[in-house]
Design a protein around this nucleic acid. Structure first.
Length: 912
DNA sequence: ATCCTCCCCTAC
DNA sequence: TAAGGTAGGGGAGGAT
């Protein structure tokens, strides 16, 4: 631990005065150096070379500095892994050699001073081979030498933006290390490839998919429904069989009847012990004992013949749309659960009916028909659970799999569930199962023998109630057709590795900001602004063994902190706050294993409301025109609102709506609803016509006036209203207490020039609230409103400068984040596929066009993500091996390097 | 008594 | 190599 004393422990440690001071000092030295040699520079031998002299040398440090300056190179007084291309040293001690060896990894040559002298005298960069330090040479260094020699002196000239040498790029490509510390495009790459991200973000995408389908085809449901004539509730739970695997098999018939597993690992990978996780295995593979979540290495041991198939997210999405189309043809009400799974409300279906001249007499036939339909359109099989409610349908599906169907009606639930293991119940995960098992509870029958009180003691009130009801097959939840999100977030807990030094710190901050940017994009896509922010980290447990999974987070502890925000969806607002929260969590850089950012208290813009109410969607979300039916629906839905806090009412509701015929129940309930409404002086007829959300809102108001408060989150709509109100009043309070910055305080902020992230953190740390409040006041002034306090003239001038500086910095950051190479990276594969079939000369034309746009962006100063783009090109070239693509890639790479070199100086200035 | 924060658990 | 996300509900315990 003593050797770590000089290493920063948290962001905070380095973001104080010391870091800023050093940077300023280094800048000054560089400017001095450039000025000194600008006019006297006679040669360009050292173009692109940056040396750092370690210890005593002969010729002296001063002389070496001069030679390099005159030769057009750069000289660093303090070592930086990013900037330095050559370390100049001699007579190194063993410990020093050990220390310097680690820089080999970054392709920094360690040479004797004579190399500088000889290169200068010969007016040409000398091969470094003859100038290496004895003891520093090993296989890797030799390899590096070879690479350098091959690339001749040009390798020495590559700019720092691209890495310290072409050898370095070569090295990166070979190792293809993909952690946060190696890949500047990590966050985007990660999300593009993450299966869990794909699964988890389905609901956020669903509304758009649905809108498109409805826009294309209008009302989709083709079956006759009459919910008034319904005698019982019928719910389908449709679930595709090993969806990801099935989609691949459908696309590639050669895979049929083979054991396949969907994962990232390549089929011919020589890695025997692959820690790549299987996300879906077909039944042929399952016969070997292979299952989702298993590592490929393990699976290959079980079945050497296993075929691994890469992910095809696009195909999953397309197939999903096809099957959802079918769902919507069969049912008016569909609750999307995931990409391959949905609930269909079949209550009120009028049987018998005809589908394509086929007589369908009972519900079983209908389910069969739906399964056949699904297989026809998608090539994949589905299983259907039929039940009197969601829970029963869901349990039935498990019994139906694969490619079958199963029915559980409420009257037979007790009997059919008796021997079901508790772990099979929805809502019972492995923790609850373990706890139940330890209480000697293994089956539903045993669980039913426990009283509600016993369960409450063990699991808490709500969890106990849901266990109590689920094991009896009771469930009154209506289908959730669509609900606006209550939170939006993003997290990355894989590949997070940072070195505990200044570079690591900068990369970490960039990483956090990358995630913030993703979150903000998602907020914007949902037309939401957040009023609350929660920041989460994973920290490596003390003495945790290396994770079994490659670049996994291993054994970690989780910490989170939250804060309130002025309603916002901007990187500029949320980013700095995340950095502040990050600091307050005090995680040593090299222990950080994951970061999550979640926004709550969402406020949706009016645009969103309009969109949500537009004709096509509202047609779907409010399909019922018959008031009688509307009443049923409002009851079902109100049930959900009531159920959480008010148990008495819930019981009442249960009694009424339970498993008996819907129409009778609903009438009974509507009656009391009517009473409730008329008591408040509203007309029930009018109430029934109102949009559902408004009904809920009103009902809640009645409730609160009856002194029966509800939890806020029981309705997202009202909770956003309330959050909005609350945060505003809070802000006003803050205004009163905080908006009195002293002149010294403002001066301090001004002094902490906001040119970079680290400085911003200082400013945040210092006076974050003052800055924000200042900006708010200035906004008021700008909009010709009377500011909330009187600002003396000198204050407002001062604040103006602060604001200007902030804005400059924000804009720089923004540009950085909006780097077009991120976009380009996304499309380059598609682009290649598109032009692949063209004749060579036509391809040439497209290539030229790409060159032109790359040049254009580089000239505009978009350089930050070029590295990532180049690396992507590298990996594409490897995939394509020896055809035109790799030639083209080589050409682009070479070309980018030359362009980069030309604009290098300008770029660095811009980025600084 | 109620709210808020920081977790935990679950589902896909 | 590999891509361990997203979102909702709920509980314990402290703050108000």
């Amino acid at each position: 631990m003593s050797e770590k004393l000089d290493i920063p422990k948290t962001l905070k440690d380095w973001d104080g005065d010391f870091g800023a001071y050093m940077e300023a000092k280094e800048d000054k030295l560089r400017v001095q150096f450039r000025k000194e040699f600008e006019s006297r520079k006679t040669l360009s031998v050292f173009a692109g070379v940056t040396i750092w002299v370690d210890g005593e040398t002969s010729p002296s440090r001063e002389e070496l500095r001069k030679l390099v300056g005159l030769g057009g190179g750069n000289f660093e007084t303090y070592f930086s892994r990013h900037l330095v291309t050559h370390i100049v040293a001699e007579n190194l001690s063993a410990s020093k050699i050990k220390e310097l060896k680690k820089y080999r990894l970054h392709s920094i040559c360690v040479v004797r001073p004579q190399w500088v002298v000889d290169s200068f005298v010969n007016k040409k960069i000398q091969p470094v081979a003859r100038y290496l330090i004895p003891g520093m040479l090993d296989d890797h260094q030799k390899q590096l030498l070879f690479a350098n020699k091959e690339l001749k002196s040009s390798s020495m000239e590559t700019g720092m933006v691209y890495g310290s040498s072409a050898g370095k790029a070569e090295y990166h490509r070979r190792t293809a290390s993909r952690s946060t510390s190696e890949n500047p495009n990590f966050v985007r790459d990660f999300f593009a490839q993450s299966r869990l991200h794909f699964i988890g973000s389905f609901r956020a995408r669903y509304e758009k998919i649905l809108a498109r389908m409805i826009a294309e085809e209008g009302t989709l449901c083709k079956l006759p429904y009459d919910r008034c004539k319904a005698h019982e509730r019928i719910v389908f739970h449709v679930d595709m069989d090993c969806f990801f695997a099935a989609v691949s098999v459908a696309k590639t018939p050669g895979l049929r009847n083979q054991p396949i597993a969907v994962c990232h690992a390549r089929q011919n990978s020589e890695i025997v012990d692959s820690s790549c996780e299987i996300s879906s295995a077909n039944y042929e593979a399952r016969a070997f004992g292979i299952h989702a979540g298993m590592f490929v290495g393990e699976a290959r041991k079980l079945a050497p013949s296993l075929v691994t198939v890469p992910y095809d997210f696009e195909a999953y999405e397309k197939t999903s749309e096809l099957i959802y189309r079918k769902f919507l043809e069969y049912a008016e009400r569909v609750e999307a659960v995931s990409v391959d799974e949905a609930y269909l409300e079949m209550t009120g279906i009028q049987l018998p009916l005809k589908i394509r001249d086929k007589e369908i007499c009972d519900i079983e036939d209908l389910a069969k028909e739906l399964r056949v339909d699904i297989e026809t359109v998608s090539g994949c099989t589905a299983s259907i659970g039929i039940g009197s409610n969601k829970t029963l349908a869901r349990i039935a599906t498990k019994k139906a799999k694969p490619n079958g169907q199963f029915t559980i009606w409420s009257y037979e639930a007790i009997e059919k569930l008796s021997l079901l293991p508790v772990g099979e119940l929805p809502g019972v995960g492995w923790i609850t199962r373990r706890r139940l098992n330890s209480m000697n509870i293994f089956t539903c029958q045993q669980l039913r023998e426990l009283s509600l009180e016993t369960l409450e003691k063990e699991f808490g009130k709500q969890t106990a109630l849901s266990l109590f009801e689920t094991c009896r097959g009771k469930d009154n939840r209506p289908l959730d057709l669509y609900r606006p999100p209550k939170s939006i977030g993003a997290e990355v807990n894989w590949g997070v590795r940072f070195e505990n030094n200044l570079q690591g710190l900068e990369k970490c901050k960039k990483f956090i900001m990358d995630i913030v940017e993703v979150v903000c994009e998602r907020l914007k896509a949902a037309d939401a602004k957040a009023t609350k922010l929660s920041y989460k980290v994973l920290r490596k447990q003390k003495d945790a063994p290396p994770p079994k999974k490659y670049l996994g987070c291993g054994l970690v502890d989780e910490f989170s902190k939250s804060t309130s925000l002025p309603s916002s969806d901007s990187v500029m607002e949320i980013g700095p706050r995340c950095l502040t929260l990050h600091e307050s969590l005090n995680v040593p850089l090299d222990d950080l294993r994951g970061v999550g950012i979640h926004c709550f208290g969402l406020e949706f813009s009016s645009h969103y409301r309009q969109r949500n109410n537009d004709i096509t969607l509202s047609k779907y979300f409010q399909i019922d025109k018959n008031p009688q039916q509307l009443r049923i629906d409002s009851c079902l839905r109100i049930g959900r609102v009531f159920s959480k806090q008010d148990n008495m009412r819930k019981d009442k509701y249960h009694e009424r709506v339970k498993d008996a015929p819907v129409s009778r129940n609903s009438e009974g309930y509507s009656h009391s609803l009517d009473e409730l409404i008329t008591k408040n002086g509203w007309s029930p007829e009018v109430f029934v016509q109102l949009p559902n959300e408004l009904q809920q809102e009103l009902l809640k108001d009645i409730q609160s006036s009856n002194q029966k408060p509800f939890r806020e989150n029981s309705s997202s709509l009202s909770s956003s209203f309330r959050c909005c109100k609350r945060s505003r009043s809070k802000r006003n309070k803050e205004n009163r207490t905080l908006l009195q910055p002293t002149l010294t305080q403002l001066d301090d902020i001004y002094q902490a020039k906001n040119q970079g992230l680290s400085q911003l953190v200082v400013a945040e740390e210092f006076q974050s609230r003052s800055i924000r409040e200042c900006l708010e006041i200035l906004q008021d002034v700008e909009h010709a409103k009377k500011p909330k306090i009187d600002i003396p003239c000198e204050y407002s001038n001062m604040m103006n400068s602060v604001r200007q500086e902030q804005e400059i910095w924000y804009r720089t950051l923004h540009n950085l984040m909006k780097d077009p190479f991120i976009e380009l990276s996304k499309y380059v594969r598609t682009w290649i596929k598109q032009i692949e079939p063209f004749q060579p000369d036509l391809r040439r034309q497209h290539q030229e066009a790409l060159f032109a746009s790359i040049r254009h962006e580089i000239e505009k100063g978009h350089l930050y993500q070029v590295q990532g783009f180049m690396r992507l090109l590298g990996s594409i070239a490897i995939e394509y091996e020896d055809n035109w693509v790799s030639c083209m890639v080589a050409e682009i790479e070479e070309w980018i390097q030359s362009v980069m070199h030309k604009t290098y100086d300008g770029a660095v200035l811009k980025l600084d």
